[in-house]
């Protein structure tokens, strides 16, 4: 069993990313979408939480691009995917947990 978690809030305003990471198992994946993509920026507290977490972390590239965050700003260990990757991640895991 493994779960795809999605996070759509900025970690600079809400605790959803931290809460998600602390409830995700090592076999899980976490995908940051919408304003959640700000959590992927390197050198931040969120990036430190991501690198300490066991789950594999992804970010939705089109939401990054929309917000003017270039991929060279993305923290190590975070992989950029498109909607094709989003659908694949949802299919590959047993359930999807949206951290609304």
């Amino acid at each position: 069993m493994s779960i795809l978690h999605t996070v759509n809030k900025s970690p600079f305003q809400k605790n959803d990313l931290a809460s998600c990471l602390s409830h995700a198992s090592d076999a899980d994946a976490v995908l940051m979408i919408e304003d959640g993509v700000y959590g992927a920026i390197k050198g931040t507290k969120a990036a430190a939480q991501i690198s300490a977490a066991g789950a594999t972390v992804f970010v939705l590239g089109v939401d990054l691009a929309a917000r003017g965050i270039s991929e060279d700003k993305i923290a190590d260990g975070v992989s950029v995917v498109g909607y094709d990757g989003f659908v694949k991640l949802a299919a590959e895991h047993n359930a999807v947990n949206s951290w609304l």
Binding site: E34, D35, Y83, V87
Partner: peptide, 19 residues
């Protein structure tokens, strides 16, 4: 909120992948 746009993009892609 972006939620409806995201859901639309996701649904379109899932259908495109044959789901």
């Amino acid at each position: 909120h972006q939620a409806s746009d995201s859901a639309y993009q996701f649904t379109k892609e899932a259908l495109a992948q044959g789901h």
